[in-house]
Amino acid sequence: MISNWSNLVARRDLVRELTLAELRSQSQETRLGWLFWLVDPLIMMLIYWGVVVGIFGRGEQYTPYPVFILCAMLPWKHFTGSVNASAKILRGRDALIKAIPFPTIVLPLTIVLAGFSNFLFGTIVLLGTAVAFDRPLGMSLLQIPVLMFLQLAVVCGISLGVACFGALVRDLSGFLGHLTRIGFYLSPVLYGVDMVQDRFLQGPLGKLPFAEWIPTLYMLNPFAILFTGYRDAVFYGRMLEPYYWAVLTVEAALLLFGGWRLYQYFDRRVIKFL
């Protein structure tokens, strides 16, 4: 059964059951159950807060830092979790793929969806933290659902592509950890995009050739825009610039479409590699 849209719609029951099964098995493996989905982002936030503010004494311009870091960490975790799992999923479920005809695209898709549900729990923590630190929560929060939607498209698109290559290239999942680590530091998770602009427009790095282009190029990273968007919505209480909305929407559409087409191309071919 090929992974096209009509088969996917026909098997939407499977997408739902598989996502629920994934979430259920996550929560049943842990003693805390679904509470862990709330505790997990809290712990991560405390660690980064402790390291960046407590030990290195940085991030004073990003006070309250817990809100600032959660805005980026939650979507980043959704992305890395989905991509890492997608790289292994087709190889991991080869027996299933060769036993039952079903559109295999549901496998990476449900990973992304289950991760997204975890992310939704994380946003509860984010909003709770924002309230606790007296952030100006208002109309800017209305941007969040749109950002979430675009995030879902970006993560889906990349995960679909990674799922194909993970099946073809066995060593991908080994490299992926390093690639996402590089991505972590290249994306404004621990710091803000203003820092990039400052460094390359004014500081010593500003003397480099083409330095004035670097912040613009930097902001082509869809995650740089996503994190900025969540920070504008929750941390600063303002609207994301229309230019960034436009870039992010185009990128999300391209990534989703590209990942989808790539998966369709490799869909049945990949099975022989498993």
Partner: peptide
């Protein structure tokens, strides 16, 4: 197709949950 039995099972879930899951795979 019955090429192998219980290929879609999730080890951490109960038999009952796995019935739903396996059935969804079988359509």
């Amino acid at each position: 197709t019955l090429l192998s039995l219980g290929a879609g099972f999730n080890r951490d879930l109960s038999g009952r949950d796995n019935i739903y899951l396996n059935a969804a795979f079988l359509g």
